[in-house]
Design a protein around this nucleic acid. Structure first.
Lengths: 338, 338
DNA sequence: GTCTGGCACTCGGCCTCGCTGAGTGCCAGT
DNA sequence: ACTGGCACTCAGCGAGGCCGAGTGCCAGAC
């Protein structure tokens, strides 16, 4: 077990390193923090911390930097979440309130997060599977070709083309639209398959095949993993650390371009509460020198999707966590209003 | 006027520099190209080319590199457009055909362009002002709150909330929806204002205010410049040149994050035919060391939007132009089919 | 005139060397 | 258990020197 003072030393190292971006030595530590002991004592403590794997030396005769394990301890036991100032809060709210539609909300959220944290922001669109149906629209593009439009309570719109096995009259179309909506509007997407299961049977024989086709397209839309969308921004912030991980910026950018990777990353985050994954805790190898701070957001108490930031392991955890949490809260509010 | 051989020398310099990423000297040139003259002669030609501003020396005692003006001449008079191989064409087609909706088409196009050109790809969504209306949907969210959904022939979907001055009955809503659609479906967006101008008058007095509100929201949607959307990808490719412009990658990434900047960039491109803007020809200062290759694409003969790539001035212009042109063509096809 | 071979000159890149200073580990003393 | 002192290590930096690619110019050849 580490003594109180040693934890204090670790905290000081993390804070200084995050601030200065340079390995921190025993002398500098005692000067900048009121630890009440001499550099020699701090050196002994550092030796212990290094022994335990919380800090490391980049080279002999250099100061110490925290390891992933060190950051982990810092986040878990030493750091709080730094709340935002009220002007900041107000700015967030104002900025998000101007959004005209869901795309705009997400785009603004990304910008906001990127600016506040000065890191790369990732925002997932509300998940279909956790939303409810607001409306299903069917449009005839051609006699045997339909367009299916799906609108959720969170404002997401999905569209698919449907090639019908047989032409479909306008009245049948109106009929299907009406019956479909009456069954599914206001219901959760996960319940839709059950709700529409017996719908084809209630139609004339000639239309039944088409109705089935439409329904299966609808169900596919809900199942596909393409339905999970996200937006990223603030990649320019990566260059702030370029001189630190010059070789590493490449794989990071590459990982960020892979939606699949990011979705998995967010997926790994807990559904409620904030998740922080530090360095090698991230499975994807391009991201082993980054940390991810993610949190769910939603219009109600339940999360409909997640958002977060990706930055270097050497990040201001309390500040970042504060910003992420605040933004998630406000986005939830905005979604609830719309 | 430059002699034929001097142009040939310029072409050789551009090609070698693009290939090797290093300043090219007279000796290397004669070895790698059958110019039929000695290095000394090439040196004289180079001196002239430098005099005229087509090439420059990074330092005394280094080889020459093309200037923006040199690339310009190369693109205008010396380079053709390199067509893609047929396997490449087939791959493009297959990849784009799998797209399920417009977002997917755009996303796939971005990936494709980025991969083919190994550069940053930018794809604009079909412009509303150049599309026609496929359908307008009105949904009641609450008695005095509507949702307006706009669907274009190119598959774009825009949505807006409308707060009505007075509650609006379901029958009035259905009425408005029907009349609105009968007037605007199939028409160009630019004509919509005229087409709906007198619509409020034909409604009962009590509904007139609401109808006006809906219409003005509709018109606003068409006017706002937020309606121009785009998607970018392949930013990781920037790092390939990091060692060339290490300081410059930052402003480039920043510029790419500004949708406004990119839209302006694409907007500057000619409506028909390919546009190449080289280095300082780009007005935005973050992009003065990059070149932009852009072209319009559309479902018919008319362009509905633009797409292109952003890369270092030292890029493979013939190859890039070929890829951009081919992708634009196939995207146009896909859009026409859907 | 135009091209070529030869020659002197320049200068960025790279390698080496030695210094400096921050930082460490250890030990003896309080 | 903490502190001051001391010897040691080593990354970073600047100075100095070499090398070679590349140039410009000139006199001679076609």
């Amino acid at each position: 077990m580490l003594s109180e003072r040693r934890l204090e030393v670790l905290r000081a190292i993390v804070q200084d390193y995050v601030g200065t971006e340079e390995p921190v030595g025993s002398k500098a530590l005692t000067e900048r923090h009121r630890l009440g002991v001499s550099p020699a004592t701090v050196r002994n403590d550092m030796a212990v911390l290094e022994e335990e794997g919380y800090i490391a030396q980049p080279h002999t005769s250099a100061g110490r930097i925290p390891t992933d394990k060190g950051y982990r301890l810092f986040v878990d036991r030493l750091a709080g979440v730094k709340p935002l100032s009220s002007p900041e809060r107000r700015a967030i709210q104002n900025f998000l309130e101007c959004a005209v539609d869901l795309d705009d909300v997400v785009a603004r959220t990304v910008r906001l997060l990127a600016q506040l944290t000065r890191q790369v922001a990732v925002v997932q669109y509300p998940s279909l599977t956790r939303s409810t149906v607001r409306h299903v629209e069917l449009l005839a593009l051609a006699p045997a070709r339909l367009m299916l439009v799906l609108i959720t309570d969170t404002g997401r719109v999905e569209q698919r083309h449907v090639d019908c096995p047989a032409p479909f009259s306008d009245t049948s179309l109106a009929d299907l639209r009406a019956r479909l909506n009456s069954r599914v509007v206001g219901r959760r997407f996960t319940d839709v398959p059950q709700l529409v299961q017996d719908l084809p049977e209630s139609f004339d024989l000639e239309d039944r095949a088409t109705v089935s086709t439409v329904l299966s397209t609808l169900l596919e839309t809900l199942v596909e993993d393409t339905e999970e969308r996200l937006m990223i921004g603030g990649t320019a912030n990566l260059t702030r650390f370029a001189h630190d991980f010059p070789l590493t910026i490449r794989p990071v950018l590459e990982a960020l371009e892979e939606q699949v990777v990011l979705l998995k990353l967010l997926g790994e985050a807990k559904d409620s509460g904030m998740t922080v994954r530090i360095g090698h805790e991230n499975l994807h190898e391009g991201l082993t020198s980054t940390s991810v701070v993610a949190v769910g957001y939603g219009s109600g108490d339940e999360a409909v999707a997640k958002l977060g930031v990706v930055g270097p392991t050497r990040m201001d955890y309390p500040g970042t966590m504060g910003a992420v949490r605040a933004v998630a809260r406000y986005v939830g509010q905005i979604l609830a209003e719309s």
